[in-house]
Design a protein around this nucleic acid. Structure first.
Length: 359
DNA sequence: AACACGGACAACCGCCCTTTA
DNA sequence: ATAAAGGGCGGTTGTCCGTGT
């Protein structure tokens, strides 16, 4: 059975609110409150508006202490950090920014911030590509005669068509780590072994027969448990953590409707990739945007998923906290606990101020 | 001056979850 | 236990306005 509409759509006014309507609504709520029933409210005050429309108008525009426009750099950073980690959960993001509404932030992201972020990312990526290409060519010369280090196919050198192992899912970024960031010096056996072990800890697998330095399988779902602290967009673009894969991986064990983040996260990746590269080839999706998140410098933070294997790694939603604020304060919330159990917690269980270390 | 275009913002739509009867 | 109503949320659309041609 279909749901009855909340009001008769043919009898309600739509479109922009007039000053008179605003005044009526504000005056009534200031005196009487909403009464807990938005549907009945417009009739009480003689407004030919849908109750939902009234609610939205109040929350997004008429409510006291609402700020419009003029987002600060700090607010930008918070929005970007949170978006990258939790996706488009605007209400949660808005809760971190006093005076801002979810609608405002959503619009701001869609119209400005996304472009700003991608513009910076594009520049970073181009510079990185140039450096990598130069470095790689030099290494290929040396490697061909002095080392058994396996080099990627020529296609990887062509930065317009970065190399990915055929089976690599979008989460696999080890090629970036292996080929774009290490020095051009030849690695001895010990060094190779050390790096290999390190990569294995991150969940990569390697061919036994070839001893190849690039992975033949995907990184485990829990390879992103590093902790980082981000304070500016610039830093975020160069040394931020991967998008919260845990969020997505968890979701795969639950129904899509229970875990919106799955599609949203992958959508973000595809969207960003497409904007950066102008295509949406699945193997290239994360190359640009997420490569920066997996920079080798992150491996030096000493806070890698650590020695735990992919199977035993703890899934920690607490990672998100470290993105924006200090990780020194242990934070445990019902929200996080729910997440660790693989269940999307209700938003009501999300104590934002505690979870994000605010206030 | 007129028109087209694109950016920014406001508002609506439809789905989902929670509450209530 | 179940269905309906209400509220919340994210995605999308509509409108306004500035800018370029």
């Amino acid at each position: 059975m279909g749901r009855a509409p909340c009001c008769d759509k043919t009898k309600v006014k739509k479109g922009p609110w007039s000053p008179e309507e605003d005044a009526k609504l504000k005056s009534y709520i200031d005196k009487q409150g909403t009464g807990g029933n938005w549907i009945a409210l417009p009739q009480k005050i003689g407004l030919k508006r849908c109750g939902k429309s009234c609610r939205l108008r109040w929350l997004n525009y008429l409510r006291p202490n609402i700020k419009h426009g003029g987002f600060s750099e700090e607010e930008d950073n918070i929005i970007c950090s949170l978006y990258i980690n939790i996706g488009s959960r605007w209400s949660i993001i808005a809760a971190q920014l006093p005076g801002r509404t979810d609608n405002d932030i959503k619009n701001y992201w869609n119209t400005r911030l996304k472009k700003k972020l991608l513009g910076k990312q594009r520049k970073e990526q181009q510079a990185q590509n140039r450096r990598a290409a130069t470095s790689l060519k030099q290494e290929m010369k040396r490697s061909s005669t002095t080392t058994s280090f396996h080099l990627p196919p020529e296609s990887f050198v062509n930065q317009s068509n970065p190399y990915w192992a055929p089976e690599l899912p979008v989460a696999a970024v080890l090629p970036v780590m292996s080929y774009q960031t290490h020095d051009t010096q030849v690695l001895d056996d010990h060094q190779q072994e050390s790096i290999k072990n390190m990569l294995l800890k991150l969940g990569g697998r390697f061919s036994d027969t070839t001893n190849s330095m690039y992975p033949i399988d995907h990184i485990s779902s829990t390879s992103s448990n590093q902790f980082y602290q981000t304070s500016t967009i610039d830093q975020m673009l160069t040394c931020s953590p991967p998008a919260n894969r845990n969020y997505a991986q968890l979701g795969q064990s639950t129904t899509p409707t229970m875990f919106h983040g799955v599609d949203r996260q992958s959508n973000l990746e595809a969207e960003l990739s497409e904007l950066v590269y102008g295509n949406s080839h699945p193997h290239q999706q994360l190359d640009g945007f997420l490569a920066g998140f997996y920079q080798m410098e992150n491996l030096n933070t000493g806070s890698i998923a650590g020695t735990s294997t992919s199977a035993e790694s703890e899934i920690s939603w607490g990672d998100i906290n470290s993105l924006v604020y200090s990780t020194t304060t242990p934070i445990v919330s019902d929200y996080e606990n729910s997440c660790q159990q693989g269940v999307r917690p209700p938003d009501s269980a999300f104590n934002e101020s505690t979870y994000f270390g605010l206030k």
